[in-house]
Design a protein around this nucleic acid. Structure first.
Length: 456
DNA sequence: TCTGGGGTCCTAGGACCC
DNA sequence: TCTGGGGTCCTAGGACCC
């Protein structure tokens, strides 16, 4: 936490919907919903008019249709237009400071303390923020944004959300805990539905109540990293720096089928199709290109025909003993009845390989699993200390059951391979099969002068 | 027919080694 | 030979974010 309010968080208001309303005057003043418009689509952004009827982002589109009146516009989205407008805003931010961390297409942090000396008093940064919001409005054709300015990223982000739309909140140093105390724990970054559910069982709903839980209790409930993170967040302890570039660590491709797919052959061909796009996507983000970038498309081949690995790690199978009769039965029974989603993911695409740009990447990467459970890790609510998981619990088990019932097709990854797992309800005969996608582009070394391409 | 698609990070636990 | 501690490497699973 800094001694001055020198971190600004900017968030564009109902961004996708606002771009649509700007470009199509007939939509102004009307409810607009942007997102997936298919039978299984979800809402990306609802305009404020649509929010008045209860439409929200992440809501299934059919639910938004049910809530909104006739005349509501449901749009699939024009991402090129959104990116173009976003670029205008980001360049305005870079005029304010050279240290701008773009978090997503409509959100960024700005370090006001970087570079030239400026007035970092509460009044000074308020004036700066006011001018910034005006410029954004003028240069984007009327789009509004909200900003929070505070002594940490956490408080800046919370501030930008407090008076949306077109809000500007400066959290004066020393006032952080007062701002935080009455908020619901969900306002804290890293507290999602699972953590909030779990906290509620301990009678904790607000940040103030969270602050009364002792650190050892939080750690025993949520584990080392998440427990420590919650303890710090509740006390407004956050010293994450604003960083200009973020390294891409994994790429994936995923699609939800319009209708559930129960046919194994069809499933395999869909996965193969998705997998073919992965090397190209990887090149696009500058992750692990090699040679001239040409290579054979990935192939699917059976890797573990009996599905032992998949069975061992099935949800609910933790602590499962391989010799147990129930385990053998479960192995025989594993077969998805239907899948609604397919996907392929690669990540940590070049573990342990040297190459220009790779040194920094490797040193920053927390290698999965390389971690002693006895030695307390230095955790912080900073870069990644406040994420984690909630163990077991009724809600947790309920969710796991729901996941199985949805027949999700899960996808994992490994060194130099993409593995595809099938998950489904434990019904019917037939083994689960794990497939490896051979990707020749993962192996060869980079040319010595290779540099990652900037992420678009 | 409730719940997309792109990511990040953390943790449990098995295999293996000393 | 047995037992166990401690560490590393890796996979799978889960929570969370926009």
């Amino acid at each position: 936490m800094r001694s001055e309010p020198s971190i600004l968080h900017l968030d564009l208001d109902a961004f996708f919907a606002a771009v649509e309303q700007r470009d199509k005057p007939s939509l102004r003043g009307r409810p607009v919903v942007v997102g997936g418009i298919g039978p299984r689509g979800v809402v990306s952004t609802a305009s404020y008019e649509a929010r008045a009827f209860g439409a929200r982002s992440a809501m299934p589109t059919h639910e938004a249709r049910r809530r909104c009146p006739p005349g509501t516009a449901f749009l699939g989205g024009r991402f090129a237009a959104y990116r173009k407008t976003s670029a205008v805003v980001m360049s305005l931010l870079r005029e304010v400071s050279s240290v701008v961390e773009q978090v997503s297409v409509d959100e960024a942090y700005v370090d006001l303390a970087a570079g030239e000396q400026r007035d970092l008093s509460a009044d000074g940064v308020r004036l700066l923020g006011e001018e910034l919001l005006e410029r954004i409005e003028a240069e984007t054709g009327g789009l509004t944004a909200s900003a929070g300015i505070a002594s940490s990223k956490m408080l800046a982000k919370i501030g930008s959300d407090l008076e949306k739309p077109r809000g500007l909140v400066v959290v004066a140093p020393g006032r952080e805990l007062d701002v935080l105390a009455p908020l619901n724990v969900r306002a804290l970054g890293g507290v999602g539905p699972a953590t909030a559910d779990r906290l509620r069982t301990f009678g904790v709903e607000t940040v103030e109540q969270l602050r009364r839980l002792a650190l050892p209790d939080l750690v025993s409930i949520f584990g080392e990293a998440h427990g420590n993170g919650l303890h710090r967040l509740a006390r407004a302890q956050d010293d994450r720096p604003v960083v200009v570039e973020r390294e891409t660590k994994s790429i994936s491709a995923e699609e939800t089928f319009e209708t559930d797919v129960a046919d194994r052959a069809r499933l395999e061909s869909e996965i193969a199709r998705l997998a073919e796009g992965v090397p190209a996507a990887r090149r696009r983000v500058g992750l692990r290109p090699h040679g001239d970038g040409q290579g054979a498309p990935p192939r699917l081949q059976p890797a573990d025909p009996l599905g032992h690995a998949a069975a061992r790690h099935r949800p609910g199978g933790r602590g499962h003993r391989p010799g147990h009769p129930a385990a053998a039965r479960r192995r025989r029974q594993l077969r998805p009845a239907a899948d609604r989603r397919g996907g392929v993911r690669t990540h940590h695409a070049r573990p342990g390989r040297a190459g220009p740009g790779a040194g920094r990447a490797r040193s920053r990467r927390a290698r999965p699993g390389v971690r002693s459970r006895r030695r307390p890790r230095r955790t912080s609510a900073g870069r990644h200390g406040h994420r984690g998981h909630a163990r077991s619990g009724v809600a947790d088990r309920r969710r796991r059951r729901a996941r199985r019932a949805r027949c999700r097709l899960g996808v994992g990854s490994g060194r130099g391979r993409v593995t595809v797992r099938f998950e489904g309800p434990l019904t019917g005969p037939g083994p689960v099969r794990t497939f490896a996608v051979d990707d020749p582009q993962l192996e060869p070394a980079d040319p010595p002068d290779w540099r990652p391409e900037p992420v678009a």
